[in-house]
Amino acid sequence: MNFFIATLRRELQISARRRVELTNPLFFFLMVVAMFPLGVGPDPTKLAELAPGIIWIVALLATLLAADGLFRTDAEDGCLEQLLVSHQPLYVSVLAKLCAHWLVTGLPLTLCAPLLGLMLQLPSPAMTALFGSLLIGSGVLSFLAGIGAGLTVGLARGGMLVSLLILPLYVPVLIFGSGAVQAAGRGLPFESHLLILGAMLLLAVCLSPLAIAAGLRISMDN
């Protein structure tokens, strides 16, 4: 547990010292969402209908882009090798790194999302669903993206490849995430969507560090 907290604190400190990298995914999120009214037209009813899908898809892309750097700097400066050879379990350090990653990317995205919802004329009852589904769902997104990042960290160019590997795995999260917002927008109950997202989160938190640890070992052997 101490090891977990120490790793978490270290990761958060590193991100706090690179503030620009912290805000980049947020700006990406904001800018891509702003492109949609320009592309499909500013009609409020149309935007309100598309808003859940737009916000969720852009959130998927933002987490994927952010995840590419998840292990890269550590691999370059040798920290990752130290983690691999240390007597502390890799599972725990990976878990801590991903939690830190979610705190600096997924959580800010979630906090921004209601603002974007307002800009896209999302009806107010859907706001809670948007916030709740992103709060839980972005955790799943971060943990799944970690699998792609772990498998490609040894490669010179990972960016596009991570998206190709991980986007198919995002399908269930997208379905239930935007489904919750759509249901809430129509005045239907959306709690079941959130519960399923929660189940996915539990599964992802338990299992994906195993896959990421295996992926990191393979990548560093390479």
């Binding site: 795995l169 994906s208 896959a211």
Partner: peptide
């Protein structure tokens, strides 16, 4: 390394296939 990385990825996919199928069904 490529073979082992693909093995991990295909196992991840195998865990996910039932979830993907069920969620697409529901969608």
């Amino acid at each position: 390394a490529a073979g082992r990385a693909c093995a991990v990825l295909s196992l991840v996919g195998m865990v996910n296939i039932p979830i993907i199928y069920k969620s697409v069904d529901w969608w």
